[in-house]
Design a protein around this nucleic acid. Sequence first.
DNA 1: TCACAGGGGTAGT
DNA 2: ACTACCCCTGTG
Length: 300
Amino acid sequence: MPPTPHPAPTPALPTVPIAVRRFDLAATLDSGQVFHWRRFDDGFIGLIDRTPVFLKQVDPTRLLVTPGTETAVAHYLALDHDLEAITATFPQNDPSLARAVAYAPGLRLIRQPAWECLATFITSSLKQVAHISQISHALRQQFGQPVTWDGPTLHTYPEPAALAAAGARLLQECRLGYRARYLADTADMIASGSLNLSFLNDPTVSDHDALAHLQRAPGVGPKVAACVLLFAGERLGFFPIDVWIERTLKELYFKQETHVPTEKLAAFARQHFGPYRGYAQQFLFHYARTSAATPHKRRP
DNA sequence: TCACAGGGGTAGT
DNA sequence: ACTACCCCTGTG
């Protein structure tokens, strides 16, 4: 480490170690499932719901976390997911998928708070990851609540009532564009009780019904709904198809064909990748976006 | 410096 | 199927 010139060195935050296996913090937080974690002192800071947390992975088997947050962190990061068992269900004759898994074997699908996840993905349409993150932070700053702790002040994701009260006009100031109306209207549905997100994690509600419920919300179509069911509902059989995955699937599995409809890709994903295809999607997506060998576009 | 295209889709036709 | 939608960011 060269001596830091003027700005004061970031004060080290207190941590306790927890043991991890097959876990990659950076890949997990930077694989497009969550957008509010910020780099801090070779680690990340952010909120798990309302709990401020500093996370830092020092080696493949050790994760440093803010004291007292161990249980919340383990649950949020889904450290209990058995990745060996999950990847064992993947097709064994698929070198492309194997390459994507080998690229970031410790990538995990985390358990996000439902509303925060839904709202964030409503704002994600036709946006680049950097911009989604920017919008997310702006909304927190403007309409969330500050949380003070040892580290830099963080802001909670605003409650549905706060965004509903703000209204589309005010939300617009966070550069949401046409998404402001969707977000305000969905926030209103939830604040008024006309939509209750508790079905997301309710095992008695089928995937089919959960998808239908979610799509009642304005700004929520098949792609956003699949993301929420996967990232907040822990329904690992959902397979969101965005432009990246669409390109990837066409390139890898439909090279010869032109004009492959999305429905055909979805059907292929269902039968080819198996019950944990949500994980397969995440591995393929992360590989396509961050490895140098992306198919068409080459912009990380 | 400043157009200009193109973004992790959705809803209305 | 086909478009409009808001507007930021990256490129030339």
